Amino acid sequence: MDWTIEPLVGVGPIRFGDSPEEVAAKIGPARETQRLSAMPQFLQFLGGKDSVTELRSDPSIEYTQWMPNVAYEDGKVVELIMTDSQENLNINGIPFFTGVIDENFVALKTLSQKIAHTDDGTYFFVDLGISMLDEEIFGFEDPVTVFTRGHYDGFIEKSISAGTCRYIKGT
């Protein structure tokens, strides 16, 4: 399956705003769902009032056939968690799970016009709707999160106010 990112629109066949039924028709049913209240406390700051994540990893099938995990708020896709099982994940031809990590990051930093970096080593390419560990930590086995417009704005602003995040490009 083609996993090309269209910034703030979607990835491959999945579009931000799709319903769970639309996603299931495109990539198959979820193996499990988790409501925000059941997620670890450190993840709960990200969700809205009606947040659900569908898990699609399945130990009974080959790893390379796993589909991305999908997060919804109010019944609409807001975030996709991509892994190296989506090995051709890319944006404008820049790969995430192949190539040379440093070169990939240079290309992403050049492409993006608004980048926030947290003290724990996470980049938010805000205008591209991508979040991932920085090049010092990231390995090709680490997930890449692709999100809709505004999904992390509140978190980034709170983190900037707290002094744990800063814009390194744009504001």
Results as ranks from 00 to 15, higher is better:
T164K: 14
F140W: 06
V52P: 04
F97W: 03
P95L: 02
F45C: 08
F97E: 03
F155I: 10
V70T: 08
T33L: 08
V100P: 03
A71F: 07
A38G: 11
L46M: 12
G10V: 04
T33G: 10
M39D: 04
V9L: 09
T53F: 00
K114F: 00
C165F: 00
I115S: 08
S112E: 07
D142V: 00
I14T: 06
I61P: 09
G75A: 05
D153Q: 13
I81W: 06
L89K: 03
G121N: 12
S51E: 09
T148I: 00
A30I: 10
F105W: 10
S57T: 14
D153E: 14
K169P: 15
L8H: 11
N92V: 10
F16V: 02
E157P: 02
T33Q: 12
K76C: 00
W3M: 09
T83F: 01
I5R: 05
F147Q: 05
G93K: 11
E62Y: 04
T145V: 10
S37G: 11
G163Y: 04
T98W: 07
I81F: 01
P13Q: 08
E54N: 07
F16G: 02
F125T: 10
E135H: 08
Y123F: 12
E157C: 00
L108E: 02
E136G: 00
E21L: 06
